[in-house]
Design a protein around this nucleic acid. Sequence first.
DNA 1: ACGGTATGGACAACGTAGTTGTCGATTATA
DNA 2: TATAATCGACAACTACGTTGTCCATACCGT
Lengths: 162, 162
Amino acid sequence: MSSSPMRRAHVPMSGAELALRLLAAFRGLVDDLHAELAGRGHAEARPLHGFALQAVGPTGATAVELGERLGVSKQAAGKTIDALEERGYVRRDADPADARRKIVTVTPRGHELLALSAEIFERLRARRAQQVGDAMPAFEAALRTLAPDVAIGLDSPGWFGR
Amino acid sequence: MSSSPMRRAHVPMSGAELALRLLAAFRGLVDDLHAELAGRGHAEARPLHGFALQAVGPTGATAVELGERLGVSKQAAGKTIDALEERGYVRRDADPADARRKIVTVTPRGHELLALSAEIFERLRARRAQQVGDAMPAFEAALRTLAPDVAIGLDSPGWFGR
DNA sequence: ACGGTATGGACAACGTAGTTGTCGATTATA
DNA sequence: TATAATCGACAACTACGTTGTCCATACCGT
C-alpha cells in the first residue's frame, strides 16, 4: 500500500455536512454542560443564561448595554434579565446617578453558576481534546479562522435548546 | 527564537470559547447560505426548511416519519410540513393504501431549492477551506470525531434563526 | 431657565418553532 | 368482532426573538 502507515485518505465533507456537524458539536457541548449543571443544583438554568450572565460582567450592565453585548434588542435583553432575576442569578438596582437606569449585577448564586459552568466546560473540552488527540491545536486554530468573532450575535430564538 | 519559523504557540481555547465558536461557524455558514438563497428566488426559505426537505427524501415521508428523522414530535413535523407546503416546496397526498396516512413529497420547486442549497454550500465550504488551508482535512477529521452523528436532533425552537 | 431631543425601561402584540394533551378516523390484531 | 395501535389535526402552552408605543428622566442649545 502507501508509504504512510494505514492512514485513510480524508473524505472531504459536503458543505451541508460541515454545517450540521458544527451545530452538532456545539449542541453536544451545551447539552453535556446542562446535564451536569442540572445535577449540581442548577436545573433551571437555560443555556442562554450562562452566556447572558457572562455578558453582564463584573461591573454590571443596563438592559441596553446587555442587549448590545448580546446582539439583541433591549426588549429581549430585558426579558432575559427577568428570567435571570427570577432564578436569582442577577439583581436589579436603581442607579443613584440616573433615575432612568437600572443596574443589573450578578448575585453570589450567579457567580456560582458561572464558576461551575467554566469548570464543567473545561472538563468537557479536555475530554474532546483527548478524543481528537494531536490535531486539537490545528482544529482550534482552524476554528478561529472560520469564526473570528467570539462575540456572536445571539439573536434568533432558541439557539440553545432545552 | 525557536527552531520552527515564526510559528506562534497555539493558545488553547476555553471550553466556552470552543462552544461559542462552533456556533458562530455554523451561523456564518447558514447566514451566508440564506443571504444567497434570498437573492436567487428563495427569500422565504427558512434555514430549517432545507434540512427538513432533505429529510423528506426522494421517496417521501409521513409526518411521523419526518418527526423521527428530525428528532422532533410528529406535531412539530406537521407544522414544518405546513410551512413547506405553503411555500410550495412539498405536496401532501393521500396514501391510497392507508386512509390515515398522508404522504409528503418534494415538489420540483423543492428540488430546485435543494440543488441550489447544495451548490451554494459547496462554494461556501470551498471558501472556508481556502482560508483554513492545509489544516482543512485535519479540521474536518477532528470535527467528525467531535460530532460523530450527522443526523442531529433538531428539537429546540429556533436553531436556525432568522 | 426652558423647551426640544435623546435615552432607558416597561408593556403589548406578534412571529417562529418547539412541547404535551386530546380526539376522531382508520387499520391491525387477539 | 371487540380492543388496541397508528396517523393526522387541533388546542393550549413555553421560550425567545421582533417591532411599536409610551412615560419618565436626562441632556443640550438658545
